[in-house]
């Protein structure tokens, strides 16, 4: 990844859930980092561990989860933070936006109550000041008729409007890092573009770091500085965004790109699906998680766990025993 001191850094993060059917190894050995003011994309199919990784950072995992490894924010260990620091960490230094705007707001509380509670708790703002700030924020996220919305209930707003409210809410205390977990997956393409542009602009205007989670490579491609590709709870490839697309090394990262229909190609183009289905995470892996579906797999892939291997200066790494060469990229 690019140089500089990272704002958030995960080192060998592993997360295991205890379930009635035995342990689920949801995330294994994930390392990634994002710098102040930069945007990091995390892509992967559903179940690849994107949300769980970020929930670990946000302390949102259930008590059945066991976390290993380190997560540091601005040099402080997030997982073992003293409670005095914790008290004003979440919702202040980092904030998060979730996938489904329809369920992200409390249906029985008015918008103003939900918008102002965070500011009032963390910053001791008076009711009036908090309300003024709420209107400012709603205008910042370009919600039409911001002041009028304050007394409304969530069900009176459309999905796109609700996601704007959720984003405004996350910005309440000027976070240094905003984590957006598939913020547009539940929205129409047209609304999606609006929301993504908004996040882009906010990031530059507020000098905020952004982690943008998506299962859609297209979403991440235009809007991030770096990308991490995850599969089966592990990082497959990690690079600056243009490098990842220009010089793909990992067969999974490549397969993901190829499986998406290309709108500029006429009808009938044969798609290149990834055969099989995503891995079962309830047994620990002995080899590459992608091996059962990988067209490049060889015998050793099933028995040897690939480790992160650098390309060039090391900002680009991949975990594969038989990586694609330069010539194989799309």
């Amino acid at each position: 990844m690019s140089e500089g001191t990272p704002l958030l850094e995960l080192e060998n993060l592993s997360i295991t859930f205890a379930t009635p059917g035995g342990p689920v190894y949801a995330v294994s050995d994930v390392s990634l980092s994002v710098e102040r003011g930069k945007a990091l994309g995390i892509v992967g199919e559903s179940g690849s561990g994107k949300s769980v990784t970020m929930k670990a950072v946000m302390d949102l995992l259930p008590s059945t989860a066991a976390i290993g490894g380190r997560a540091t924010f601005d040099g402080i260990d997030v997982l073992t933070m003293p409670s005095s620091r914790r008290k004003h960490f979440y919702g202040v230094d980092v904030a998060m936006v979730f996938q489904n705007p329809m369920t992200s707001l409390n249906p029985v509380k008015r918008i103003d109550a939900q918008m102002t509670e965070g500011m009032r708790y963390h910053r001791d703002l008076s009711k009036n000041d908090a309300k003024k700030r709420a209107i400012e924020l709603l205008e910042l996220v370009r919600l039409p008729d911001a002041a009028g919305r304050l007394r409304q209930y969530p069900h009176e707003l459309s999905g796109g409007m609700r996601q704007r409210v959720v984003i405004a809410m996350a910005l309440a205390n000027d976070p240094a890092l905003l984590i957006a977990d598939e913020p547009t997956t539940a929205l129409d393409v047209t609304v999606q573009r609006d929301i993504l542009n908004l996040l882009d602009n906010l990031r530059t205007d507020l000098n905020m770091a952004l982690i943008l989670i998506s299962h859609d490579l297209g979403v991440v491609r235009d809007r991030t500085d770096d990308v991490v590709v995850m599969y089966g709870g592990r990082v497959m490839e990690s690079a600056q965004t243009e490098d990842l697309f220009a010089d793909t090394r990992h067969p999974y990262a490549r397969a993901l790109q190829l499986s998406i229909p290309d709108i500029s190609k006429p009808r009938g183009q044969r798609l290149d699906p990834i055969p099989g289905s995503p891995p079962d995470l309830s047994s620990p892996l002995t080899g590459c998680p992608f091996a059962p579906r990988c067209t490049f797999a060889q015998d050793d892939c099933h028995s040897t766990l690939p480790v992160a291997t650098p390309v060039g200066d090391g900002s680009h790494t991949f975990s594969c025993l038989h990586p694609l060469g330069q010539e194989a990229t799309v």
Partner: peptide, 13 residues
């Protein structure tokens, strides 16, 4: 998922 989506689209075709 995108990877599976491609399987189904090919199948339908």
């Amino acid at each position: 998922d995108v990877s599976v989506q491609a399987q189904i689209l090919n199948l339908l075709e």
